[in-house]
Design a protein around this nucleic acid. Structure first.
Lengths: 233, 233
DNA sequence: CGGTTATTTGAAATACGTCAATTCAAGTGG
DNA sequence: CCACTTGAATTGACGTATTTCAAATAACCG
């Protein structure tokens, strides 16, 4: 459960009891392989944490066009959201082999007194998710392909934990990234080549290496949400 | 307050007391003229209902590019959302002359027992808003300009209340619509002309006239959210 | 190693944006 | 009622971004 604890702690500090509670979730761990539908559009199921691997929320049109809404990294969760309708319109699919645990227990103290650190952390995580969705909209609507790619990589770098690190895991196929950014695979490939040629960033073999963070930020136009998430108050 | 009551009633039935409460909000009515910033990015203020006129939530990039996230029609509200962060990333701007009232009172019974009809209605309205945002993402990322325009008009028709009506008010400039759909004004204009030529729909003088609802729905690829919102259970 | 899936590249088509000008609609003040 | 503005809608010509089609590597996996 380490990835979950690490990430939740970035949003709010947890009590010892809460840490134990989260650790306890690890018992009911489930493993899925790449390409599995975890949560179908329309169907409702419980909230889950992802321990390892990558998941995405997406929608597929009748003619095969696909739009990815967001990714779920190790330590993050999905299927939260009190309102079921929010999830009625997206399906969650594993992009790699994935380990998940049921996260429903996190809300079992819902009736109790002050908002627990745990619930505050989850709420902050959801708020952060919302903020990203707004960025995503601007990105899709008003950025060029080059800017989209730059912004996306920057966002992923920040979410990957070590914002300082030059290199971080990005095990997504170009097709997947293209479907997130509203581009064709071929064009994304060309844009990535441009970014590489300009010596901003390099994506290869499931790993991204940022050579020029400053220039990359400049190229992405939008300051990615969570920039301000240095530490919780 | 009639527009607000009408809209809330579509989501949940209100008790007589609740109807009175909402009516009471009308006392503190405020009028704004077109082009006013009601809620700036980053600043937090209370929730509000729009009695008349049109508002949009948007973001403007440094270089002037604008992306509109959503519109607020008469009877709808904005600035809700428990999490302030959600609104930290968008500004609300009036597109026409607008009347608003403070909606904070709606939440004053927050501590009480079962979810009131009022709160259920507002929550449903927010859920609906979320669902639309997902549609918006797909629209921006994966629909062609022609499909975008068709889908947008269809969405507006449904939100305008009378889903049956052939004609409904759509007092938006083409520039505004273009900024919502991630298109240039010129191209949107051409696409609207195509829709008119194909005899699907006509937008002129702030009014949209749907000539062929079936064909329009077919052209919009996505079934707009709220299709299923015939009446509450 | 062979078979499959991802990445990369080229050439051609098309969708969409930009620039610039014209028309149209709706005031506004004389 | 008529110039005269002003902002929006419309159109043409042209440039560019992005997609599509097709094929050739390159990486991965059993």
């Amino acid at each position: 459960m380490a990835p979950v604890l690490r990430r939740l702690s970035r949003f709010a500090s947890l009590s010892a009891a809460e840490i134990e509670l989260v650790r306890g979730l690890g018992v009911h761990r489930r493993r899925w392989r790449a390409g599995t539908m975890l949560l179908t559009e329309g169907r409702t199921s419980g909230p889950q944490f992802v321990l390892s691997g990558w998941v995405c929320g997406q929608r597929v049109l009748r003619d095969g066009r696909r739009q990815i809404f967001d990714f779920v990294l190790a330590g993050e969760g999905f299927g939260f959201g009190a309102r079921a309708e929010t999830h009625e319109r997206q399906a969650f699919v594993t992009l790699t082999a994935v380990d998940t645990v049921d996260a429903a227990a996190v809300f079992e103290d819902a009736g109790t007194e002050t908002p627990s650190g745990l619930r505050r952390a989850v709420r902050a995580m959801l708020a952060h998710e919302d903020a990203r969705r707004f960025d995503h909209i601007v990105r899709l609507g008003r950025l060029t392909a080059y800017e989209k790619a730059a912004h996306f990589i920057l966002e992923m770098q920040q979410r990957s934990g070590a914002a300082e690190a030059r290199s971080f895991p990005l095990p997504l196929t170009q097709e997947t990234m293209a479907d997130a950014l509203g581009l064709s695979v071929v064009h994304l490939n060309r844009v990535l080549r441009q970014l590489r040629a300009a010596n901003l960033v390099q994506v290869r073999g499931g790993v991204a290496i940022v050579h020029d963070p400053k220039a990359l930020a400049a190229a992405s136009v939008l300051p990615p949400s969570g920039d301000d998430l240095a530490a919780h108050p």
